[in-house]
């Protein structure tokens, strides 16, 4: 059994900041107090705080230094516990990370109705397969529920388009067209354009607009054209009297 002042002196020697010294003192105190299963959990949590205070590498170095100082220091056990503590810390970080990623996916791709029968998808940031899947699903649902006729996809905020992102965009465009909406792609930057051509990704199935203004103008023209055609059809049907017959038949 060690005298407490002995341990605090050691803790002061090892620790570089007051907070760290206190943690070491706590740790050493617990380590040389009574043993047991309960003790293990307490030791792990102190080690965890130490791992947060320090980085993993200095922590390992300091444990090794302690083992050199104290002959009866149970280095193997402490390292085991330290590894466990670091593992816990990492798991928690990973959890936070996946949580953040989920939040990002929700935040990052707004689908906006910018005009009658027209949706705008503003893509921002790097797109991985998870996000791609998410965007495509949400867009297709929106297209089908709003009965949109034109979808403008703006990729100004996408820094890089590789074959995977390109393939995903092509897939999404084809699916959107299957739902009966036209797709207008805009926002391809010069450096991305060159890379896409070199890669051999082409977007032949969709119309491409120079910028959002151009895309909007084209979209409006498309929807107006559609409305005009419909009106003409309705008029010609009314003239020939087909509409009235149809209506009577329907009821």
């Amino acid at each position: 059994m060690h005298a407490p002042q002995n341990l605090s002196a050691l803790a002061r020697k090892i620790g570089r900041t007051p907070a760290e010294t206190q943690l070491w003192e706590e740790f050493l105190g617990k380590l040389f107090a009574a043993e047991g299963a309960q003790e293990e959990a307490a030791l792990t949590s102190t080690l965890r705080s130490l791992a947060e205070e320090l980085e993993e590498e200095p922590l390992a170095a300091k444990i090794a230094a302690l083992a050199a100082e104290l002959p009866e220091f149970p280095a193997t056990r402490v390292f085991q516990l330290a590894l466990k503590a670091c593992g816990e810390k990492r798991r928690e970080q990973e959890e936070t990370l996946s949580h953040l990623r989920q939040m990002l996916a929700e935040l990052a791709t707004p689908i906006i109705r910018i005009w009658t029968d027209m949706l705008l998808v503003a893509m921002i940031g790097n797109i991985d397969s998870q996000r791609a899947q998410d965007i495509a699903e949400r867009l297709l649902n929106r297209v089908s529920s709003t009965r949109a006729k034109v979808v403008i996809v703006d990729v100004t905020g996408v820094p890089m388009i590789d074959t995977v992102v390109g393939g995903f965009l092509i897939e999404m465009f084809n699916a959107t067209r299957l739902l009966g909406a036209e797709v207008i792609l805009t926002g391809i930057k010069p450096e991305v354009a060159h890379t896409l051509v070199k890669l051999g990704v082409d977007f032949q199935t969709v119309s491409i607009a120079r910028d959002l203004e151009d895309a909007l103008r084209r979209g409006i023209a498309l929807t107006m054209e559609e409305t005009r055609k419909r009106r003409e059809l309705a008029l010609s049907l009314a003239k020939s009297g087909v509409g009235e017959n149809d209506e009577r038949g329907a009821f």
């Binding site: 590789d162 450096e191 890379t195 890669l199």
Partner: peptide, 17 residues
Amino acid sequence: SLADTTKVATAVSELAR
């Protein structure tokens, strides 16, 4: 250049994938 940086990044992305 910006174009070449994008090309390098794209190539690395493809290879890593």
